[in-house]
Design a protein around this nucleic acid. Structure first.
Lengths: 200, 200
DNA sequence: CCTGTGTTGGTGAGCATTCACTCACCAGTA
DNA sequence: TACTGGTGAGTGAATGCTCACCAACACAGG
């Protein structure tokens, strides 16, 4: 039959899928059970409450951006700053695109948001981490002379990642009628602009 | 006694305050009525359903960024591009700060998000408007020779406003322990960086 | 090799509560 | 008298969660 883990995993998958599609508010225990192909009571064999189930979904199913960034930063510095920034922006855009709808809906349920934050802190991570990591990377490049001496690395990091996050926000907003710019193009334009500036 | 409008206004205010504090999910008709100092039944004298009440809150209580931007853009061009961008960033940051928690929580209830979007479209506005307006402003400055000829104004607009939006996201995330940078400073740093770039 | 026993992971039925919403009714005023 | 804006007391439906029960397996003792 099914392994002990598989039901738990099916529950987590179902919950995540529902949160993403019909929204956190309409993701009820009944719907989760139906989507996971088990009874409601089964949920409570694996999770102590609906809230704990959500926290586990956030912890075990949402991707992390920090590791990606650190990997980029620590990698062999063979590529140019612009290439690195483009790749970072590309990955950040994809990351936010996948995690934004769920992260945003947490604001509807502050208690859940608080628990999620506590769980993140436990893991030594959090939504401000990518900003700090990118800023640290840029500082390193600045000391290597590949970024202008007076450059404000915090501001640059906020600009680059903020643009990616906002893109996700708009991406999931209904009625995105106009054909959206491909991620690669978007990322490249951001990197280019943040490097060159727009001043005369 | 109270004017005909005042109850309706008290209801809208109460609903908005609750959405902002305890979250969309826990903002029930009973809580709204209690906070507005009236009965639940009174809500239905003024709004046909809870969903319609929420839509009205969004429509009548949330600030608009577009007009602010247009006013800035159309104003007498006596100030430098950097001063203008700083002011735009400052206002955008404050705007997002005040509207983000509510806007984000809409993602928990896609049906409400959709209705909100329809209402916005009715008003000829929407979350993409500020991006377009800022980009248009930058294009105008480019043609006036105050912005570099090859500059990507779309990318620059995405960078500036994205950073402001993300700041609001983080602002409302629990556990903002570190003393946050003042808006003015933040806005000035963004404007400076987006103009000068960080490249060598 | 059976057999008793405990554990694990599952079920269907239902319970208390909460929710959005309605209804009959009423006070003040035009 | 008719209308507007208000109320208290519900109502049916939905929700999170529990409970008694059960099938399958692990496995130690006779």
């Amino acid at each position: 039959m099914l392994t002990p883990m598989s039901t738990r995993n099916r529950i987590l998958d179902a919950a995540e899928r529902l949160m993403r599609t019909i929204g956190l508010a309409r993701t009820t225990t009944k719907e989760i059970a139906r989507a996971a192909g088990c009874s409601e009571a089964a949920l409570y064999k694996h999770f102590s409450s609906k809230e704990e189930l959500f926290v586990r979904v956030l912890e075990e199913r949402l991707p992390r951006l920090g590791p990606l960034l650190e990997e980029m930063v620590a990698g062999p510095g063979e590529r140019s700053v612009e290439e690195n920034l483009t790749e970072i922006a590309r990955r950040a855009a994809l990351f936010y695109e996948s995690s934004f709808p769920i992260a945003a809906s947490l604001y509807a349920e502050p208690r859940l948001l608080k628990r999620h934050h506590a769980a993140l802190r436990e893991l030594g991570t959090g939504p401000r981490k990518p900003l700090l990591a990118l800023s640290a990377y840029l500082r390193a490049e600045r000391e290597a002379g590949r970024v202008r001496p007076g450059a404000d690395t915090d501001a640059a990091a906020a600009l680059l990642l903020g643009a990616c996050a906002q893109r996700a926000f708009l991406h999931d907003f209904p009625g995105g009628e106009r054909p959206e710019q491909p991620v690669e193009e978007f990322a490249a334009a951001l990197a280019r602009t943040v490097l060159a500036g727009i001043g005369v």
